[in-house]
Nucleic acid binder design. Structure first.
Lengths: 237, 237
DNA sequence: GTCATCATGTAAGCCGTTACATGATTGC
DNA sequence: GCAATCATGTAACGGCTTACATGATGAC
């Protein structure tokens, strides 16, 4: 899960650990904050498995920081702090780049059903769905839909018999049921758009067209932290 | 978390481990299935801490199973399988009953903010909210509301900035935002009902909690019973 | 020169899982 | 008497968290 998110970020650009953590928080909304105690070991695992390599920092950053002057002192100071291991840029930063092997692992992970029970799993995968081939994208949406439908059926079966629930549990069930129904119909729109794209010569931006329910709020043209797709995940059945 | 759910079930009736697992799945929808490897250790922890005790099975069940006859053979067979340790009923079942200490722990857990990041946490607590005193119930709802509003604000703040998201991420953000707004207004209805109900005079130290900030969503003041969750059904398509 | 921030890592522990091991009861 | 289910438990392991430890850089 964590490794999937990291690879997803590195698909876009080279990053070092500290920055990756920020992106996970701000961009993917992945976990409020992933701890370093899990982030760095994860990066080391990825490096050992050949999914990423430590590289020198991109020129752009480096040039901006290191003075152009021939100043001996400045050069030496820069060297001292810089040269110790591959992938160490200024300061002690270790900048990672994804490899071809990493891309392979990434798509494999993205297309797998690991962590299917974790509510963040689907949100993360959909946020990275642009990296999936169309067929796999359909599978992802269909799996999610099926699991929601099953949950709904199960809930209805269990509730029908004994509606002796107290008001709180009952309200929770109702709210969760409705939210689930809404998600299913949202998925149906995504699926329709996805299928229309694949089968007809209509390419492109149809994908997000469906939604925009616009209940009343401002039409946010948002780029946000992609998600806090924590999802209510109601209890009770 | 698991212990909270277990205590919640035992508030209602005496149960043995295997049955508890079924209830967690069918009744609380807690985890698709809690493994025995975590359930039994949890029960043992609860027993050691004095929150539960192993008891003889309730008479009702026992009577139904053990024949009333004075048949020596029957009696002996029943004894053989039954008597080994307190709380062992027929077969090897170990039936648990919550204690006063357990009830104290239960309410304390229920009112705490543990696992606040876990999305199942709120659902579980609301499902058990009937066991909370009114003030704690309000706190629970207000905490949830505040965290959703914060999430929404954060998303919008991050949103206002730069680059465009791809269609999948964008659709995800939109759907999640809308779902969050709906949950907030649902909570507003629950809060209104809750306030209308019990509390005529606000207790002395009202300072800490205070009224809800009203930052984000609409202030839907739909009174009516908590059960009336007709929901505005803004539906799209 | 010292503080906040950036940056990387290790160690201990919690909480859960899967896999394994055992045995009783019921139905056929 | 045999299988399916009920029922309880242990052992090994995994991933994530907190707390700890270290050090560089930039601002004042």
């Amino acid at each position: 899960m964590l490794e999937l998110a990291i690879l997803g970020l590195l698909e876009g650009e080279e990053l070092h650990g500290y920055e990756i953590r920020k992106r996970l928080r701000d961009e993917l909304g992945f976990l409020s904050n992933v701890s370093f105690g899990s982030l760095y070991p994860a990066l080391n695992r990825l490096e050992r498995s050949g999914a990423v390599v430590a590289v020198a920092e991109p020129d752009t950053e480096l040039r901006a920081v290191v003075p152009m002057t021939g100043s001996l002192g400045g050069e030496r100071a820069a060297m001292r702090s810089r040269r110790s291991a591959p992938g160490r840029g200024r300061r002690g930063r270790k900048v990672y780049r994804i490899t071809d092997e990493g891309r392979r692992q990434f798509v494999e992970l993205l297309d797998s059903e690991r962590d299917a029970d974790d509510p963040r799993s689907f949100g993360l995968r959909l946020a990275l769905a642009r990296y999936l081939p169309p067929a796999a994208r359909l599978r992802l949406l269909e799996r999610r839909r099926a699991s929601l439908v099953e949950r709904l059926d199960q809930a209805r079966a269990a509730t029908s018999g004994r509606d002796r629930l107290d008001p709180y549990a009952r309200s929770l069930v109702e709210h969760t049921t409705e939210a689930t129904e809404r998600e299913i119909s949202w998925l149906d729109r995504l699926l329709a758009a996805e299928r229309a794209r694949g089968t007809s010569p209509t390419p492109g931006p149809a994908a997000s067209a469906g939604p925009a329910p616009r209940v009343g709020g401002p039409t946010a043209d948002n780029e946000s932290s992609i998600l806090t797709m924590a999802e209510t995940e109601g209890d009770i059945s």
